[in-house]
Design a protein around this nucleic acid. Structure first.
Lengths: 354, 354
DNA sequence: CTCGTGGAGTGTTACGTATAACGTGCTCCG
DNA sequence: CGGAGCACGTTATACGTAACACTCCACGAG
C-alpha cells in the first residue's frame, strides 16, 4: 500500500513509526533499555509488523562482519548417517539464528572444487566430518575460519575442537558380544575408505580379538555399498575353516553380507552371525534385524555446532583462554543386539552375550 | 605479510596493482573488454592471486540485491529420496555459483518456525517439495520470492514452475505388472501423509484396477516407516479372501510388508507379491530384492533448480513473457522388476508381466 | 582546425544495517 | 545554584562491492 513493490527497509519502518532509523535498529535488536521510550518502542514494533519488515541479512552481515552461516562438509548426504549429522547441526544452528550450508567433500564424485567458491554464502566457520587428510589440506587453504572436526583424527589438525564418537568402544562391544556367544573365528568386512573412523574400527576389533586369545580376524575391504558387502562376504565365507561371524564396518555392508550368506545356503544367524555399524533404518528393515552399533549422529552434529558456536564466541582473543587449545569430546555409542547374531553352530548354547 | 590480519578487500588489491578499486571490480568480474588495458588487467589478477583475495559475498549481495542462494524445503533429509533431490539441486546450483540452504518443512517434528527467519541467509528463491497446502500458505506469507514446486499439486499455487514425477504412470506400471502376472486381489498400503504425491498414487492404482475389471483394492494407511508398513500389512493379510499382492506407497512400507508377511508364515513372492516405490538403496538390500518404481530424484532436483534459475533470470519483466504463467515439467519414471513379485499362488504361470 | 569517437581509467555514490558520537532537556544532590 | 547524571533520541559513518558518470587523451574524418 505505502511501499513501492520492494521489501521495506528499516528506514521505511522508521518513517512509519515517526522515529529515526537508528531507533528502529535499537528497538528491533532489543538494545533499547534506557535509549528509547516504551511507547515509541512499541510503535516501532507495530510498524515493523505492519509493513512485514525483515532485516536485510546481507547488509547486516556486511556491517557485523559475521554471516551467521556455517559450512558442513560431508562425503554424501544420501548416507543416512550424514543426513542425521546434518539434522543435528541444523537444529542447533537454527536455535542460534545460524544457517548451515552443505558441501559434499572432494572424496565424492563431483569435481574437487573450492568449497569456499562453491558456497556462495560467506562463512563464519566450518564443520568437517570424516575427512581424509588430503581434503583437510584443501580446507586449510581456505582461510583461517574456525574449524570443528567430527569423527576424525584428533591430531595434526588446526581444529578448534573435535567431536568424536567412541567408535573403538563400539567395536569392542561388538567383539565382546560375539566372543561371549562363543564365536572364535571372526572375519571383518571393512570399508574401502581411507578414513580415521574405519581405521579405528579395524584396530579395535583386532585388539579385542587378540586380547581374547583368538587368531586375528580375516579381513576384506569392500566398497561402502550392499553389493560391496556381498562380494567381500562371498570371499570370506569361502575360507576354510569358515568364519562363524562377519563383523561389518557399516549396516550396508552387513546387508550385503547377509545376502551373500544366504546365496551360499547359509542361514543368518544359525550358521553365521553378522553385525553392522551405524544403526541405519535399514537395520530394522532386514530380516533378521541387524545387531549393530547405534551412533548418536544427531547428537554428534549438535555437539559439533555447539563447539563451533563456542569457538566463534571466543574469537578475537588470541591467547588460549579457557581449556586446552583443541578440546576433544567423545560421545558414547551403544551396541544394539537384534536377531542377526547367535551362538556359532556346533556349540552348546552358553549363557550371556556381552 | 602486508595485510593486517583481516581478509584483503578489493581496495587492497587495487593498491597492490596500482589501479583503482573500480578497475579491480571490472577485471575480476570479467567486464573489462575495452575498459582496462590487458597489461593492467593481468596485474590485477596477479595481485588478487598474491593476496588470496576473495570477494566479500555479503557486500556483493547488498550491492546487487541478489544473494545467489535458494531455499530447499523438504520434509526430512534422512529420507534418501529427499537427499537425492537435494543433491540434484545443489549440483546445478553450484554450476551457477548458487548455494542451497535447507529447511525442514513444518510437517516435520520441529517447531513450525518461519523458514525465512530460520534461514539466516537472504534468499533469491524457494524450491518446495511435497508440501501440504497448509505449509504452502506459510511460505506464501514469506514474501514474493520466486517459487518452484517439486512433486506437488500444480493447481492453485503461485509457483513460477512445477516439476513433477509421473507418479500416476508409475503406479499404472505397477498395476499392469501385477495384473499381467495374474493377480486379481490387490491391496494398497498408503502413506499416512496428506500430500499430493500420495493422493495420486491411490487414485492411479484404483483407476487401473477398476479398468481391469477387478474389485477395488483394499487399502490401509500407514506411518511412513518399516513398522508402519508391518502393522498395515498384518491387517490386510488377515482379510478373507487374502490379497495376493501388496502395493506399497514407499520402499520402507514394502520392507515392513515383507517382514509382516513372513511373520505370518507367508513367503514373498510365492505366497504374496509386494511392490515398493522410490527405489531406495533399501530395495536391493532386502531379500528378495524389491520390485519398485525408480524415481529420478536427482534429475527432479536439478530440473527444479534450473527452473528456478530461469525464473530468476526473467525477473523484472512483469508481463508474461515466454510461455504460460506456470510451466509444468513431468519426468518419466520406470518400474524396476526384481524378486518380490511373482504370479499369485494356485495359478498356472502365464507368459509375461507387463 | 574542429569535432566526434572510442579506449583507458578514476571518483563517487548507493545498497541497508549497526553503532559510536553527539545533543537535548530534566531531575537531583552537594 | 551549578553541574552531574540520566532518559531519550538523532546524526553521521563505515562495512566492501558494483556501476554510473565523468575526465583525459589520441586519432581520424570533415
Amino acid at each position: 500500500m505505502t511501499s513501492d513493490r520492494s521489501r521495506p527497509t528499516s528506514r521505511d519502518v522508521a518513517r512509519a513509526a515517526g522515529v529515526s532509523q537508528a531507533a528502529v535498529s535499537l528497538v528491533l535488536r532489543g538494545k533499547w533499555r534506557g535509549r528509547v521510550s516504551p511507547g515509541k518502542a512499541e510503535a516501532v514494533r507495530a510498524a515493523a509488523r505492519e509493513l512485514g519488515y525483515r532485516p536485510n541479512q546481507a547488509a547486516r552481515s556486511l556491517r557485523l562482519g559475521r554471516t551467521r552461516t556455517a559450512l558442513l562438509v560431508v562425503p554424501a548426504l544420501t548416507n543416512e548417517f550424514f543426513a542425521r549429522l546434518h539434522a543435528g547441526t541444523a537444529r542447533v544452528a537454527a536455535e542460534h539464528g545460524f544457517g548451515v550450508v552443505l558441501y559434499p567433500s572432494p572424496e565424492g564424485v563431483g569435481p574437487a572444487r573450492d568449497p569456499f567458491d562453491s558456497a556462495s554464502a560467506a562463512l563464519d566457520g566450518v564443520i568437517a566430518s570424516s575427512m581424509a587428510s588430503e581434503a583437510l589440506a584443501a580446507l586449510h587453504a581456505g582461510g583461517d575460519l574456525p574449524l570443528v572436526m567430527l569423527d576424525s583424527e584428533p591430531e595434526r589438525t588446526r581444529a578448534a575442537a573435535t567431536v568424536n564418537l567412541d567408535i573403538a568402544d563400539g567395536m569392542r562391544q561388538v567383539a565382546a558380544h560375539l566372543l561371549g556367544l562363543g564365536h572364535r573365528r571372526l572375519a571383518h568386512i571393512f570399508a574401502d575408505v581411507d578414513s580415521w573412523t574405519f581405521r579405528v574400527r579395524a584396530k579395535a576389533l583386532a585388539a579385542a580379538v587378540r586380547a581374547a586369545g583368538c587368531e586375528p580376524p580375516l579381513a576384506r575391504p569392500a566398497a561402502l555399498t550392499v553389493a560391496g558387502g556381498m562380494r567381500a562376504a562371498r570371499d570370506l565365507l569361502a575360507a576354510d575353516p569358515r568364519p562363524t561371524a562377519l563383523v561389518c564396518d557399516d549396516d550396508l555392508l552387513a546387508a550385503g553380507a547377509c545376502k551373500a550368506a544366504r546365496r551360499l545356503g547359509l542361514r543368518v544367524p544359525e550358521d553365521v552371525s553378522v553385525t553392522g555399524f551405524d544403526d541405519l533404518s535399514l537395520a530394522t528393515a532386514l530380516e533378521p534385524e541387524l545387531t549393530t552399533v547405534r551412533l548418536p549422529a544427531e547428537e554428534a552434529g549438535a555437539a559439533g555446532m555447539r563447539a563451533l558456536l563456542a569457538a566463534l564466541g571466543a574469537t578475537g582473543v588470541p591467547g588460549g583462554a579457557q581449556g586446552g587449545p583443541a578440546e576433544v569430546t567423545t560421545l558414547p555409542v551403544a551396541l544394539t543386539v537384534r536377531g542377526s547374531t547367535a551362538p556359532p553352530p556346533d556349540t552348546p548354547a552358553r549363557p550371556g552375550g556381552r
